[in-house]
Design a protein around this nucleic acid. Structure first.
Lengths: 168, 168
DNA sequence: AGAATATAGCTTCCAGGGAAGATATATCCT
DNA sequence: AGGATATATCTTCCCTGGAAGCTATATTCT
């Protein structure tokens, strides 16, 4: 009997007219996500990074050399608003991990780029980050992990590809 | 090919030395959780509530008549600090949905209680909230939903019951 | 009883993100 | 060409929560 099951039990007593079945899946999903985030942040912090900052450096690193992207692109990739991205880049620039310069092709645009220090930091942090995720996932049997990924992929598609992939 | 798969592909190109398999499950879990939160908040907002406020009212409602709990209890139930709870209760008190009075048995303690307006609001909101969760979950086949709950229960136990249930 | 410690809640300060608007540049249309 | 609209980013203000410390009350121990 876990925390979520206790909550469901209380609702069943207080509101027997309502079906609280779905809260079992959704409640546990949120709690698992929260615990995972907490554990992942421990590794980020060892490198002096907050979660959002790690995300930005990772998005730049994934872009490949010369490790550059526009702020708007970064915002879209990391699911935050451009206002939040401005502040993240401010902090990373302050820390000497990225630079910001005007775009050559578009006077409105800026280019955010990893510095050498930023590249080295994210490469080291990412290696440990993935090892950390591996350890966390090892709590599940491999079959369960596969099945979980399949089901989540299905569910995610409902939110992110609601009318089918564009026909290319 | 969803967003998470694209990210994995980019990492595979840039960092072929690292196994990015676990990011498939963990990344999708976080994204699904984020989308669910967004959808759930839409219902809360229809009742003028933020997520945290809904959680507090729900915790009070689940307690059963007379719908009272100590702030510290509420904080533990909803996984926030007592400082955050003080401010949530401030807002709910301001809105006339809860009252706050000194505890009779412990001079240090306070008792937070639903008002009639608070009780009516959370009962109406909870009914719609569960219908909303049901709709969201209906995107999955019933078998998948069951399997998902089972796997998440296993995983959650690793975080919340690390050394086994207390022997009662 | 009286001192030391523990507990409950609150206050203060700070960090992070969202929303809306401001600014500068680009593009489109006549 | 020139005005209207669109786009990219930044700025400002606000909301929420965390961390640490404060105050009042309880409890424990001598």
């Amino acid at each position: 009997m876990d925390h979520v099951a206790r909550i469901q039990q209380e609702w069943a007593r207080e509101r027997p007219d309502v079906d609280v079945g779905p809260a079992g899946v959704i409640g546990r999903l949120h709690r698992v996500a929260g615990h995972l985030t907490e554990r992942l942040c421990l590794v980020y912090r060892r490198f002096g990074l907050a979660e959002g900052e790690f995300d930005v450096l990772a998005a730049l690193r994934r872009a490949g050399a010369p490790y550059e992207r526009a702020p708007g692109e970064l915002a879209a990739h990391t699911m935050v608003t451009t206002g939040a991205m401005t502040k993240r880049v401010d902090r990373l620039e302050q820390a000497g991990l990225v630079t910001r310069r005007p775009s050559e092709s578009d006077g409105r645009g800026r280019v955010v780029a990893l510095t050498t220090a930023g590249l080295e930091l994210i490469d080291a942090a990412f290696t440990e980050h993935m090892a950390n995720e591996r350890r966390l996932l090892d709590a599940l049997a491999p079959d369960d992990a596969d099945r979980l990924e399949t089901i989540l992929t299905t569910w995610l598609a409902v939110f992110e590809l609601p009318v089918g992939e564009p026909p290319a």
